[in-house]
């Protein structure tokens, strides 16, 4: 029944003491889609994200990955199943080189991660694959650089490469362009497009121009529940969406504005 959906939620609810952050959310992420989760600040996007990846425990409801109920599973187990997330704040290992960052991900699928008696050189067999992944995000020349010294945009690229090293079936990106200049944003859009080949992507994103360029389907959240869902044209034409973003339903055609701009 749910073959075409890689990821599904059914009546997902998360309550914090006296406050419902996520209220009866039903998401259906179709295989091969780039699906965006948008909404104004405080709409519950990141909470949904943390629920999906088990960094938070849902109060009620179900999460299904390829038809299988994964609600009771733990974060690490879900990552191994092929559902890997990125973080809002750039999540890298700062005091390792770029290459070592990737190797940590590759190592996750090797049997040797508890081998405290083996030499570090035994990890060198992962170098070739790690270099390929670095190359795919244009970081070849930084392979041997300490990550803490990389520019912000490059850290995010590295993070994406690390995530891809897990060969995820579905990629969950939490605001991949947050805090970036225009140039970096364009690069990330390209990276995400490339990464999405043969995969499904769910992303939280503030930048609507990014969403319009990339996404096949958009879910709009407001105050914890789904306001509407559809492709970019449908969603951007919906007066309710404009209302939550701009406070009024009035102004004319403003296709590609960022949410931050709109909120001002």
């Amino acid at each position: 029944m749910s073959d075409q959906y890689v990821l599904e939620t059914r009546s997902l609810v998360k309550e914090f003491k006296g406050f419902v952050a996520v209220d009866d959310v039903n998401l259906q992420i179709q295989k091969g889609h780039i699906h965006a989760l948008i909404g104004p600040n405080g709409a519950g996007k990141t909470t949904v994200f943390n629920l999906l990846t088990k960094f938070l425990i849902p109060t009620r409801g179900q999460i299904l990955f390829k038809g299988e109920d994964i609600t009771p599973m733990k974060s690490a187990a879900i990552a191994r199943k092929g559902m890997v997330r990125s973080f809002q704040i750039s999540a890298v290992f700062p005091h390792m080189t770029a290459l070592e960052n990737i190797r940590v991900a590759l190592q996750s699928f090797e049997g040797s991660s508890f081998s405290f008696w083996k030499s570090g050189a035994s990890l060198n067999r992962l170098n070739k694959r790690a270099m390929e992944l670095l190359d795919s995000v244009g970081l070849t020349e930084f392979a041997n650089t300490m990550t803490v010294e990389l520019a912000y945009g490059r850290k995010r690229a590295l993070e994406l490469a690390t995530t891809l090293a897990m060969e995820p079936e579905i990629l969950l990106l939490d605001e991949p362009t947050q805090g970036m200049g225009t140039e970096d944003v364009d690069r990330v859009v390209e990276l995400v497009r490339k990464a999405a080949e043969g995969r499904t992507v769910l992303m939280v994103e503030h930048n609507l121009s990014v969403v319009s360029k990339l996404c096949d389907r958009i879910t709009v959240l407001a105050q914890g529940s789904v306001l509407t869902e559809g492709d970019y044209e449908a969603v951007s034409a919906d007066p309710r969406v404009r209302e939550v973003y701009m406070g009024t339903g009035s102004s004319g055609e403003r296709g590609a504005v960022t949410a931050e701009e709109a909120a001002q």
Partner: peptide
Amino acid sequence: SPYGHVLKAIKQN
């Protein structure tokens, strides 16, 4: 060791 690399990763993030 490979294990040490994982420890390092856990410590850093």
